[in-house]
Each structure stands twice: as C-alpha cells, then as structure tokens.
C-alpha cells in the first residue's frame, strides 16, 4: 500500500434550494488510500468544524453500497471513476497524491438541490407509488411454491430488482432521464407471473408519472447503464418500451 496523499477538492456549496451556489476549494492532507471517499469527506468536515465553518452536507447512510443514499458526482461521473461502485464504496486508492477532485450534486430538474451535495429524489418514490408494486394485501396469498418461476426468469427479474434507487442513471444521462430506474421496476415485475395482472396499468401509470416529474427522455446513449452501481442493463429499457407500447395499444384505458 502506498503512502498517504494530499488532495485538492472543489466542492459545490449551496446553502439551500433557493441559493445560487458556487464551488469552494479545500485542501485535505494525509489521506490514507484505505479510506473510503466519504471517510475522506468526514475528515474534511472535521477540519471545517474545527475552523468554525459549516461542514459540507452530503447524503449517506449504509456505507456498504446498498441503501442508495450516497450521491456524489465526482470528476464528471456519478459515484466516481469505478464501474459498478457507489460513492461510499469508492476508496481513495483510486486517486493519486496531488489530484484535484471536483464534486458536484446530482443535477436534474427532477432532483432539486436541498443543500450542498444533497438532492431531493422523492420523485422516484412517487414513480413507484404510481405503479411499482403488485397489488396484494397482506395475507391474500397462496403457498409460495405454488408460483413456479424458472430460474432464468427469476435471475433476470433479480438483476432488475437489484436497483438501489440512487439516481446515478439520471445524473449520468445527458438528458437527465429516469428510464433505467423506471424500467428496472417495470421489467422486474414484467418478468414475474405475480406482476402480470396489472402489467398494462403499471407501465402506463409509471411512464406518465415519470414524464410529469420532469425527467428528460431516453436517447439510448447507455451512460446510465455504464454508471449504474448495480450495472442494470439497457435490456430493461427495451422491455419497458415493449410493455408501454403493448399496454398503450391494447389496454382498455382510452384516456
């Protein structure tokens, strides 16, 4: 393991959602390569507190790459330079002594900045609330093994369900499109018999909500999938397109 490093950080600071915001530059010293990126921010924040300055607000919680809360746009890429990794799992060994690192919040109309690097991703929740579920009340079920699901289908559904809802897809997309996120849920439930009864309604409603929230549209650049920490595939977007058009042209909904 190499020695410690000194870094220059250019971090977006914004007091609240109405503030204009600007970059601030900070120096951090003696950063261990074993630190995670967020631990490096902890060090910086301790430094700021001891100087009487306001620490940088950033979202984070589980710090093991699964809750989807952390959300930093690092050197032009959501979650930084590695593939299939969240910010909290990015370690400083991916950087070099003397580097300048630019850190910005997710940028999208549908993800307004709350403070510094913290954004409001409740639009994702509203999309799920509009159809990302199977309508089954508690207790209304039959024995689990009465529903047979082939391994391939189960695995494919799982690969979509692995989405952590972090929003890196939106952050990465030049159009700030949420297609990968939305398609992951539509696709997961489209692969499973449980999702079948309401598949048309689901596709129609979720796409409608997605549009209302102000996300851009998909131009199939593939940046979302390339940056997705769970490496969710573009195949799900294609499946969602099929689901949506299939629903629109065949459902009973004339509105």
């Amino acid at each position: 393991m190499s020695g410690t490093m000194n870094l220059t950080l250019k971090v977006w600071r914004q007091k609240n959602k109405n503030d204009k915001g600007a970059f601030a530059t900070y120096q951090v010293k003696d950063i261990s390569p074993d630190m995670s990126f967020l631990e490096m921010f902890d060090v910086l924040n301790e430094q700021l507190i001891s100087k009487g300055e306001t620490p940088i607000a950033f979202d984070h919680d589980c710090r093991e790459g699964i809750c989807g809360m952390c959300s930093m746009y690092i050197n032009g890429r959501p979650h930084g330079p590695l593939k299939g990794v969240t910010t909290c799992q990015l370690h400083m060994r991916s950087f070099h002594d003397g580097d300048t690192i630019v850190v910005e919040p997710w940028r999208a109309q549908a993800f307004p900045v709350i403070k510094d690097l913290v954004v409001d991703r409740s639009s994702f929740d509203r999309i799920i609330a509009s159809g990302g579920f199977v309508s089954v009340n508690t207790g209304n079920t039959k024995d689990a093994n009465n529903i047979l699901i082939g391994k391939e289908d189960a695995d494919e559904a799982f690969s979509a369900a692995a989405c952590i809802g972090c929003g890196a897809c939106v952050a990465a997309c030049k159009n700030a499109s949420a297609m990968l996120f939305v398609s992951a849920k539509i696709s997961q439930l489209a692969m499973l018999p449980q999702g079948d009864p309401e598949r048309k309604r689901r596709a129609e409603n979720m796409v409608e909500t997605m549009d209302e929230e102000g996300f851009g549209s998909c131009t199939n650049t593939g940046a979302c999938s390339a940056e997705c920490p769970k490496e969710i595939s573009l195949e799900h977007i294609a499946r969602m397109n099929r689901e949506y058009f299939g629903a629109k042209f065949t459902s009973q909904n004339v509105k």
């Binding site: 579920f133 079920t141 529903i147 082939g150 559904a157 439930l189």
Partner: peptide
C-alpha cells in the same frame, strides 16, 4: 411461513431452482 408467501406474492425475486421452486 406466511412471510415467504407474502413476499413471493409481492414479486420478491428469491433464488430459484431450475424447476421454478424456491
């Protein structure tokens, strides 16, 4: 036992055997 039934009904993609069983 009810929990597993409930979760499967919700579309939780548990690991499966090739034959489709849990």
């Amino acid at each position: 036992v009810n929990i597993i039934d409930q979760c499967v009904a919700q579309g939780v993609p548990f690991a499966r055997e090739y034959g489709g069983l849990l």
